[in-house]
Design a protein around this nucleic acid. Sequence first.
DNA 1: ACGGTTACTGTAAACGGTTACATTATTTCA
DNA 2: TGAAATAATGTAACCGTTTACAGTAACCGT
Lengths: 341, 341
Amino acid sequence: MSRRRSSSVTIRDVARKAGVSVATVSRYINRNAPVSQEVAERLDEVMIEMRYVPHAAARHLASRKTRVIGLLLNNLHNDFFVPLLNGVEGVIRKKGYNLIVATYHADIRNETPPPIGPHNTDGLLVFSDGLVDDDLINLNARGFPMVLVHRTPPPSVSIPSVTVENTEITHKLVDHLIKVHGKRRIMFLRGPIHQEDSLRREVGYKSALRANGIPFDENLILNGEFDRDIAYQVMHGFLNNGRQIAFDAVFTGDDDSAIGVLRALHQHDYRVPEEIAVVGFDDLGFASFLSPPLTTVRAPTEAVGRIATERLFGLLENQLSDEVMILPTEIIFRRSCGCQS
Amino acid sequence: MSRRRSSSVTIRDVARKAGVSVATVSRYINRNAPVSQEVAERLDEVMIEMRYVPHAAARHLASRKTRVIGLLLNNLHNDFFVPLLNGVEGVIRKKGYNLIVATYHADIRNETPPPIGPHNTDGLLVFSDGLVDDDLINLNARGFPMVLVHRTPPPSVSIPSVTVENTEITHKLVDHLIKVHGKRRIMFLRGPIHQEDSLRREVGYKSALRANGIPFDENLILNGEFDRDIAYQVMHGFLNNGRQIAFDAVFTGDDDSAIGVLRALHQHDYRVPEEIAVVGFDDLGFASFLSPPLTTVRAPTEAVGRIATERLFGLLENQLSDEVMILPTEIIFRRSCGCQS
DNA sequence: ACGGTTACTGTAAACGGTTACATTATTTCA
DNA sequence: TGAAATAATGTAACCGTTTACAGTAACCGT
């Protein structure tokens, strides 16, 4: 009659049954020291027979490695995350690691610490503003492996980072609306405040206006939050209240918001692109089948996920690298901007 | 000069600095025994000052709880997963748990055990065919908490399950194509083999044909795998090779596949819905803005994720329940079937 | 033949928490 | 007022691994 609280089979049970010490079993499992042919075979049998699975927590505690990678997102409201997750997950599975996904609102006022970090993962992929700079600097100072995704490191810190080119391509896209389609009152939907993609896109937007001698009008900036539903609401609100403010095009911030914007425009009987041109960003799978087909910027989102994860594993294996990697983007011209119509 | 291998601060450090025992610290952290006002305040200070974060693995090992829920998917190739994940993640965060997401190809021939299970999670959400029946039965027999998502339990096992109504609604939808739009050669794109949604939809499809006296034609069944790209390829291949086989409508299996199908039809210059009607399933966010707007079945995917997770927590708290929950679905008529044109 | 590797194995101390059990001081209540 | 319950705390065993250290036996080169 044992005092054991648990019913699960442990390494000791295996060791006893196979007539060896637990150390030998552990070494065989981890293949980090030679074991005699005979013992190996016996262990294989016993382990299968007893359905032994090593207890992860015990392993983590003893080895000080979790074999878990964390992905910190700020929300899960965007189809954008499917290709991203897919890229990340593929690499992680290949490496035999596990993926923990958490959403966290990095906010100075957020009292609770991030749910994932050094205490439960070996490394973190931090998307966008998933962590505030302070946390980032702190973790980095403690030598915790991280790779930033769709954001660059805070000044004076060097953390590897993978993102896409935003500024120039947005400049080009807005420039296209102006030069080719004669638009001059172009609305811009911001993403979340402090979101780097959004910031850079805004820079590109403004520089294109400036380059074309078009005055910037604060009234044409809306906060779409890169969220389909919020974009819809904010656009809907604008159309209800502010009909007096003229506009002839919308840069929706991202493709997901484009859906909300299109819905609102549609509801208010605007014709796209004849009256209002609409362009997005990301080139999500549905973009070419929206009505009208969406002119947008193709971003290699799955590659971002894949490369970021590979770099994180590089870090775990002590291959240092601190460069910011910016993947190229390209404009896909479709009908919503007025092309191909 | 200590022998400590790690540099991180432990509960013992906190205890020493606060002048109490580790037991007291532990109890205060877990709020599972009263602690004097004075000690509480001192601990708060010390813990913040030392930036103490409990080591997850140690906690798990000692308490035999991981505070981690696993979500087992068969892939991450579908925008469908965003609302699902969102529903799941919301509940998990509220409970202070963590979410581990894994893809696993449940296959008799798959030698490696599932990456998540009793050894690293407190419970599992098993999507579709994420696990083979044997594994399911096995884990269930060991009393491991699980909730099935978009599938029902194998015969003679009772595991709670949350899914959506497939058969009747598909019957209705196909019936609509036949009765209202006069279609008689309706193509059906299957999902992954053994995928229950797909199987049930097929049943509904066939029963609608039968009810209308239309003979079933095996040639009109394609394997779209519920995957946008595969659906495109298979449709594209069909249109290239099989032009002799007439058809006048496509039930694409799900909305994601609808995108692939639309692309292929478009490329081959078919007009939708005039020549070919197209209908999907799920009503993903983009469905109403496809070109043409997609007639589809609205599935409460986020609710499925939320409810399944809530039921899993119910299980963790020993509230038994073994019923199969089937959430209602409804047809959303848009233009791609021929309505509203 | 002998010191030095190499192959294989075992013992026991971590790893960083939780918690059963024990203890003392303080209330509560018949 | 005395017994019992409650509050607050400490001691130490335990959770299931990994791994430093130690040891034995076989092998190797000179």
